[in-house]
Amino acid sequence: MPVMTIAEALREGIREEMRRDPTVFCLGEDIGIPGGFGGAFTVTLGLSDEFGHDRILDTPISEIGIAGVAIGAAMTGMRPIADVQYGDFLFCMMDQLANQAAKMTYMSGGTVKVPLVMRAPVGSTRRGSQHAQSLEAFFTHIPGLKVLAPSTAYDAKGLLKSAIRDENPVLIFEHKLLYGSKGGRSEKGALTAVGEVPDGDYVVPIGKGIVRRAGKDVTIVGKLLTVYRALGAADELAQEGIEAEVIDPRTLIPLDKEIILESVRKTGRLVVVEEDNITHGWGAEIAAMVAEEAFFYLDAPIKRVAAPDTPPPFAPPMEEFYVPSVARVVAAVKSLF
């Protein structure tokens, strides 16, 4: 089976879907220009050679325009994949996404569908406050959007295909340190998140989480990069006799609550690890859900490991302090015993 990076797996997924369905097309900044990188992180590299510039559509630097075009195209029968260079720029599209895309199906009584996909890179990678945020939680709060967060190459391709075929607007968040982008677009400190990806068509269903590591003593829920931090912590904890179960929900909306609840019912302890700021975050939602639905199974307080409530800092030592590390996850877990 071929081994791919997440960027390569996404590219294969887009390629297969564009071959399968002529209504699928990509739009974004610098995604297909000759001599370019194929978007900021090489995901669309080379696709314009096969599909041409009509279907790999380079746009002006106008995020509100990209969103508007994508939503309009989706409402009129196309299946656009919009590329957001940095997730931070989603804020420029907020009215389009929150007020138009998310609400159109509800407001039209289900007669209008908005089958758009928007891909956005997130995560702190030494790019300072405006190119490093993790924005997932903002969009999980908007009814009408589906929100995905693939952390492996297999899931990236499989979830992307599910997203393209979904009738609702779907946001896919991708972590810059997990892309495995090469050459001039390789990221410092990136993980080699390569994995086996089957040739040809397969989907990963939206709304199904996965147990990345089984354990009986504590449940650690992470997403994107923090799945790997959780797995690193689980390795360290195992040496001290603590068996951590690591859960990757893969889909944030709709959330696979049961996989988390089932794990917590077993372990009695929960740590949620996220790269976003802690207050009103995704971890808070997971913690509240577990407190409501599995309270009597808890043997310790629920812990969140997250970024402090400041913008992501630019200075590398500060960023290292800011982003949840394996050591912080280990410490949080140990405080529950």
């Binding site: 009695g268 309270f295 009597f296 199974y297 808890l298 043997d299 310790a300």
Partner: peptide, 16 residues
């Protein structure tokens, strides 16, 4: 006996 006047904390799981 000694810790009697202190509040006792018990996890929901342990209490159950």
């Amino acid at each position: 006996k000694l810790s009697l006047p202190r509040r006792i904390f018990i996890s929901p799981r342990a209490k159950r």
